[in-house]
Nucleic acid binder design. Structure first.
Lengths: 151, 151
DNA sequence: GGCTGCCTGACCAATTTTGTCAACATTTTT
DNA sequence: AAAAATGTTGACAAAATTGGTCAGGCAGCC
């Protein structure tokens, strides 16, 4: 089980855009260059996110994309949900009860549970947090490198 | 994100085998018939599970497959791990630190965390439990149906 | 030794992923 | 109003993965 390139690119792109003030237009070519995606593919990936109101777009000269929501209010799950198919719930071994619509397959409810917990986890990570962590990590890295240089 | 047919078949097959005493040989054709898998595909799916010591096989007349471990000691994760690729960890935006091997990309650690929680959840479900739940659900279903018949 | 059944690796079709492209629709600039 | 810069859309296509099949080999049992 794996996340698709599309999901990864989408996350990286939003993380990159989170560095700029919400609403500021970010140039497509800048996103593509820094995140290593082709423009055509980025456009494709962004479409559903624009429809969902996470990202906005501006045509014409000086156009590009911008965050429509505060990074704090965008979570990994928001991106995940848009880019990935839902977790597959396996068909029940015993189906089509006449009297009830309950699920008889124990594996079914197990997967539902796993899926819920997974969603809960993904919701913990909003992009304000991720951007802050990234910044912090970069700081630490610079310090560590300096220390090493002294050795 | 979805689980493969192979994973689902594998889980269903082990759940079916859990109904029989551990070590008892179960005929391939019975597994295939009840779980709706082709024999050739089931063979393919079972191979890695045999290598991992979850299932045993017996050739010759009266041969087939059997559980090598108690259902109680087989969890959904055991099957999942064998059949699915590991959760993809996205590459760090900032890579190849000279001084440290730490990860600087915050998304990386987020995925690691999600993965761990997912594994924890999958480990909660062992096949003794699943088999018991299945049995229970079938009982309930019969009762419900009887009630409906009275209406 | 022959029958029954699993094992292995090669093979293949269908589906999904990962893009690309061309024509079109807007917006800004001049 | 025309031109230039950009995003939008849908069709297309290559590559990878999934979901199987098959033939020949191997191991037990009678």
């Amino acid at each position: 089980m794996i996340i698709t390139r599309a999901t990864e690119y989408a996350i990286r792109a939003v993380l990159y855009m989170s560095r700029f003030p919400t609403g500021d237009i970010v140039l497509k070519k800048d996103i593509c260059r820094t995140q290593d995606v082709t423009p055509a593919f980025l456009t494709k990936i962004f479409q559903p996110m624009i429809k969902e109101g996470i990202i906005g777009s501006q045509r014409g000269v000086g156009g590009g994309f911008y965050l429509k929501k505060e990074p704090k209010h965008i979570t990994l799950y928001d991106i995940f949900e848009i880019q990935e198919d839902p977790l597959y719930l396996n068909k029940c071994l015993i189906e089509e009860g006449n009297c009830a619509r309950d699920t008889y397959c124990p594996v079914h409810s197990a997967w539902e549970n796993v899926r819920e917990k997974m969603i809960d986890q993904l919701r913990l990570y909003d992009f304000a947090r991720l951007a802050a962590e990234e910044k912090e990590n970069i700081q630490k890295r610079i310090q560590t490198r300096n220390n090493c240089a002294q050795d």
